[in-house]
Design a protein around this nucleic acid. Structure first.
Lengths: 244, 244
DNA sequence: TCCGCACTGTGACGCACGTCACACGTCCAT
DNA sequence: ATGGACGTGTGACGTGCGTCACAGTGCGGA
């Protein structure tokens, strides 16, 4: 198994159009779905960059230089403490906007963004972005909504960490959240997990060993099944109940 | 001591003006600091309400009815799990806006808001607020900034819960954050804590007994001193070091 | 083909801390 | 003045889970 886990992610590192105006995925992306004239202007101030896999887009603590819109690829957002403990906040996917809150408040980025695969990213410098916002009122509303959504996600993280007393609870919760957002719509809670146990541990606020033990436990109890790196949650209700 | 803790809070339950336009504190409040014409309109759609102490403004899970701007008083924002565990997210103070993210995304409130003392609150219904936003472009930017700040606060909570391994660390961190925001500016980290040990525990993600033990411990180690409900952090550096 | 590396699996150990249980002080209502 | 509610202080006990240590496995490179 091992390395194939990474390859299990089939997210197409496909080419994206030169300009946002031509992007066919715009409509379904909260932030990108802007009025035509705004998009035109956005294309003027945005810069398109390709990042190789495992590269750093920006780092925790750097003064915010601007925002980054993910066009293709997956990006890990993580924060670390002085003594090396790591918290993975989320895995950003196409359509997500990075560095928004830090940019708006002119503060340091609160996380480090690292590509998990080759990524296409559009970035806008802080000054340009703020000016852009003041010209196009609607865009501010989009931005507010996007941050509101991010807020909600972080809130859920905090909640999970604070309220699900046991490691088992937090992991269960994590898998449920994940499954639901991943297999959007379909009733069957199958999804492919492109993460190592270590990374899961960092998201659930526990240790690597505990994660492997728990996953095996879950499988023995027939709450989940695994084939390679794909996971199916068999009994969501049971799962839910152990959250706390 | 006991009940006097509550009375230790000297936050003036003073009268607030009828209309925001006449409010003298507007300038120093992120959200309230709006252009004149926007404020006029805001006054038309906002409703001024007085809440007695220990009353519920809105509850976790209710579909968002609108936003609430705190004019005077302190309000506790908390979330609970099915089995009764409680997480206190923050104590809102005048100038804070409640329910913003839920209102923008038309989702349930993620926390319960309960007054800790008699409060004056201005509220705006969802429909009116959204319409207000689309009319006044600048206000959206204010809103975005406000949420960005809230995001940052929750992020810090999540970070504290996830990364400061020990209860001692989380409590220390909490006191530090608190002291810094409370005694804004002054070098001496003195502040008055209007919370019971139980409430502190719910903020630090630990138990009541552990909090009392730790506070006494801190005092024995001369990291802090206490007189009644006021606390001074004597050696912030030491304190800092035990966080992570 | 062989080595090294990254990931996973499992046992053993220890302790931080949650929980229970109870004592004490202060405030308020009757 | 008495009882109840609420906050605080402290001991004893049990355990979840973090940590260390090491074994097994599949991959990729020389």
């Amino acid at each position: 198994m091992a390395h194939s886990v990474k390859n299990g992610t089939p997210s197409t590192p496909r080419q994206v159009p030169e300009r946002c105006a031509q992007c066919t995925d715009r409509a379904e992306r909260l932030f990108c779905n802007l009025p035509d004239e705004a998009i035109e202007r956005f294309d003027e101030i945005a810069m398109q960059i390709s990042y190789p896999s495992r590269s750093i887009v920006f780092e925790e603590g750097q003064r915010a230089a601007g925002i980054f819109v993910v066009c293709s690829g997956q990006i890990k957002l993580a924060a670390t403490s002085r003594d090396g403990r790591t918290m993975i906040l989320k895995i950003a996917v196409p359509g997500d906007v990075l560095g928004l809150s830090a940019t708006l408040n002119d503060q340091p980025y609160e996380v480090t963004a690292e590509t998990l695969e080759p990524c296409q990213i559009r970035s806008v410098r802080r000054r340009d972005f703020l000016e852009f916002l003041s010209h196009y009122g609607d865009v501010s509303r989009h931005a507010a909504q996007v941050i509101a959504r991010e807020y909600h996600e972080v809130f859920l993280d905090a909640r999970r960490l604070a309220l699900s007393g046991s490691a088992a609870g937090r992991l269960a919760q994590l898998l449920l959240d994940w499954a639901r957002t991943s297999s959007c719509g379909k009733p069957e809670l199958r999804f492919t997990m492109a993460l190592t146990h270590e990374e899961l541990a960092n998201m659930a606020g526990t240790s690597r060993e505990t994660v492997t033990r728990l996953l095996n436990q879950f499988e023995r109890d027939e709450l989940i099944t695994r084939h390679g790196s794909s996971i199916v949650i068999l009994r969501p209700a049971e799962m839910e109940r152990m959250v706390g």
